[in-house]
């Protein structure tokens, strides 16, 4: 009988045994897409170490290397490029690694902004009720009438008009984060508000009120942890959408500038060479973007199903 331990299981052990982790281990789609996302994120984070060349340092660029096809040595210089080079002799693999870093950064930062803003406004609307609720949700309704990408373009245009021309290239990344983040908060706010309306009548909230905790503390310390599950799902799906939105804006020429190209900017550049036969300048960035967006989307789908108790 001595092998029955009364010690509580370790933290790692309890995570491993949780329903979510079990469902994750059993889903091949989730495993594969998580692996793809992990590899791509690591590649982006360690771009500086992994990239074979420094594509943004004019000193190491050689125009003679321009238009080298993938997996060949350049005819003039003899330099080798796995995925070829673009018109300016920049290594395509390296530009993708650095570009992915910008895409992922904008995606994560924008979702974080949308999440903080949306969760806070949703909690406020649900908990405070009354005219606070009315004002916040009306604004949300108006914004929801317009597709997010349009709102993001508009915010980008306005922000561009406000920043002085000499700072525009530097600020472009932050303007993108702001534009995409502000265009996406409504989803979070609506879900959190709905959950808050349910939670605020429960006994633990009444108890917290009774012992005199401030409304802010009740919202953040007590209600917030109980409404986080759906927020997590929306955040994952939003991340894929934000990365696609960033790529779309950059592709349209209202996003990351060519001096700091994201995946979308690279696709924009590559599109010019589609007709002249240099397919690799377009193909590899596009394939990377697709892999990234698809695997995050699949992960989000899985998470939604796994966290939804009705589907079990």
């Amino acid at each position: 009988m001595s092998d029955i331990s009364t010690k509580p299981p370790s933290r790692m052990r309890s995570i491993w045994d949780s329903d979510l982790a079990y469902s994750f281990r059993r889903s091949p789609v989730a495993l594969v897409s998580a692996l793809v996302v992990l590899v791509l994120v690591l590649c982006a984070v360690f771009a500086a170490f992994l990239a074979p060349h420094d594509p943004f340092n004019p000193a190491t660029l050689n125009l003679m290397n321009g238009f080298t096809p993938p997996n060949t040595n350049n005819a003039f210089t003899g330099d080798y490029f796995v995925l070829g080079t673009d018109d300016q002799g920049r290594d395509v693999l390296s530009t993708i690694l650095y570009g992915m870093r910008i895409s992922l950064f904008v995606g994560f930062a924008a979702v974080l902004l949308a999440m903080i803003l949306g969760v806070f406004l949703g909690l406020l609307a649900g908990y405070a009720g009354g005219w606070t609720d009315t004002v916040i949700m009306r604004v949300a309704d108006v914004q929801l009438t317009f597709p997010a990408i349009l709102v993001a373009m508009l915010i980008f245009g306005i922000a561009k008009g406000i920043t002085p021309p000499e700072y525009r290239d530097q600020m472009a990344i932050w303007v993108l984060v702001l534009a995409i983040g502000l265009s996406d908060w409504v989803q979070f706010a609506r879900v959190v508000r709905g959950a808050t309306l349910v939670e605020k009548n429960k006994e633990y909230v009444q108890a917290a009120k009774l012992i005199g905790r401030s409304p802010l503390a009740i919202m953040i310390k007590h209600i917030l942890p109980n409404v986080l599950n759906p927020v997590l799902v929306i955040a994952t799906i939003s991340l894929a959408l934000a990365i696609i939105a960033e790529a779309t804006l950059s592709f349209l020429g209202v996003g990351a500038p060519p001096t700091k190209p994201s995946l979308g900017t690279l696709i924009r550049i590559g599109q010019e060479f589609m007709f002249s036969g240099e397919w690799w300048i377009l193909f590899f960035p596009a394939a990377t973007l697709l892999a990234l967006a698809l695997s995050i989307n699949l992960l989000g789908d899985w998470l939604r199903d796994a966290l939804n108790p009705r589907l079990r």
């Binding site: 894929a240 696609i244 790529a247 779309t248 592709f251 349209l252 696709i267 599109q271 589609m274 007709f275 397919w279 377009l282 596009a286 973007l289 697709l290 967006a293 698809l294 989307n297």
Partner: peptide, 21 residues
């Protein structure tokens, strides 16, 4: 499902590549 994840501009580029180029 794949179509939903595909950004609109990539669909356009693929179509141009196949049917125009």
């Amino acid at each position: 499902l794949i179509g939903v994840s595909l950004p609109t501009f990539l669909i356009g580029i693929v179509l141009i590549y196949v049917f125009s180029v």
